[in-house]
Design a protein around this nucleic acid. Structure first.
Length: 336
DNA sequence: CAGATTTGACCACA
DNA sequence: TGTGGTCAAATCTG
């Protein structure tokens, strides 16, 4: 099991356990703070898990460019190549991926750290093309790179061409998330600190909500070919499929099940999460168009990659609570 | 001050 | 020779 998969499993398991704990705390005599903490932690866990599933930031569609002749492939395939073949352009066609991402805020973060190494005015294009490579190209030998160019037709659309696999450990460049201790005893919990965390939590939830609102109004996704390859999301173990619902619209199947969608925000240092009860309107707000009837995948950034506004809480005080496997997860009122 | 970005130059390919 | 991809010094930024 790779790193992402184990992390995903961990978050989902934790979310389920916490949900069960919350179920126990729904009793009127239970302290409301505990319920809030539990609820938040549940949401955090699912946000993290889903963010691992939704990697690319916004709902982006990829367009495989196999043997493309419209754009030159990247110049070299590894760091040592330049020693022997400086600035050489490869002639053989290599697979690349193209996504068209629409954002009013500029190119989107996709969960990886990119470093811009060049920009070029392209003949016939109104906007220059930016060249990015993985920040960890030399530190970890990650060969992933991408080209970003604003669309002439619709300047709000960024055409992103990916190339190469990410071999870097994305967790290595994230701010370390505090792993809640599960062995700390309840007696050691500082209640004033708990209260402070509660305030911080509320503030950050509010911020996330505000970001979400702006996101919902500003996002538009244009879809072409719907086929994401492992080149872009090499270790993503699942495939989330969409289905056509008419008018050329694709709607993510999992939306029907109140699956939340986690997306990196427009800045590098933040992303926000969409809670399950936001998902319905969020999904419907998507202007998802497609010219092909292929399957859609939606990937977003893993939680551990970016500086999440989600607060990591200490659940040590919850350890003694029982786990109730029969807790009604599917109750919509549960999250409200 | 380290890391990221900008930008002109260099290079290979068509 | 024009174009696109990359390098690397200069500059910017936190």
């Amino acid at each position: 099991m790779d790193w992402e998969q184990s992390s995903l499993l961990k978050e989902l398991t934790q979310g389920r356990e916490l949900s069960s704990l919350l179920g126990k705390h729904l009793h009127p005599s239970a302290p409301p703070q505990t319920r809030q903490v539990l609820l938040h932690k549940i949401l955090c866990s699912y946000d993290k898990a889903l963010s691992m599933l939704n990697w690319s930031g916004f709902m982006v569609e990829t367009k495989p460019i196999l043997g493309s002749t419209s754009t030159a492939p990247f110049a070299y395939s590894d760091a040592s190549h330049k020693i022997h073949s400086f600035k050489k352009r490869k002639t053989c066609s290599e697979r690349s991926e193209q996504v068209r991402v629409c954002s009013l805020e500029g190119p989107l973060e996709d969960g990886y750290c990119w470093r811009k190494y060049g920009q070029k005015d392209i003949l016939g294009s109104n906007f220059p093309r930016g060249y990015y490579r993985c920040t960890h190209r030399y530190s970890q030998g990650c060969l992933a790179a991408k080209q970003v160019q604003r669309s002439d037709e619709d300047p709000t659309i960024f055409e992103v061409k990916y190339r190469g696999r990410h071999t870097c450990n994305r967790a290595s460049h994230s701010i370390a998330t505090k792993v809640p201790s599960t062995t700390e005893s309840e007696e050691n919990v500082d209640h004033s600190r708990e209260k402070q965390q509660q305030q911080q939590l509320e503030e950050k939830q509010k911020q996330s909500k505000e970001i979400l609102m702006s996101f919902e109004t500003g996002l538009k996704v244009k879809t072409e070919d719907l086929d994401i390859r492992d080149d872009i999301f090499p270790s993503f173990p699942f495939r989330i499929e969409s289905e056509e619902v008419g008018n050329g619209l694709f709607v993510k199947s999992l939306m029907e099940n109140d699956i939340s969608f986690v997306s990196p925000a427009v800045s590098e240092s933040n992303y926000f999460s969409v809670s399950p009860f936001h998902m319905g309107s969020f999904g419907l707000a998507q202007n998802v168009q497609t010219s092909e009837s292929d399957l859609t995948e939606m990937i977003s950034a893993p939680t551990s990659v970016t500086n999440s506004p989600i607060v990591d809480l200490d659940i040590s005080s919850l350890d003694k609570l029982e786990f109730d496997p029969s807790f009604p997860f599917d109750n919509p009122d549960f999250f409200t």
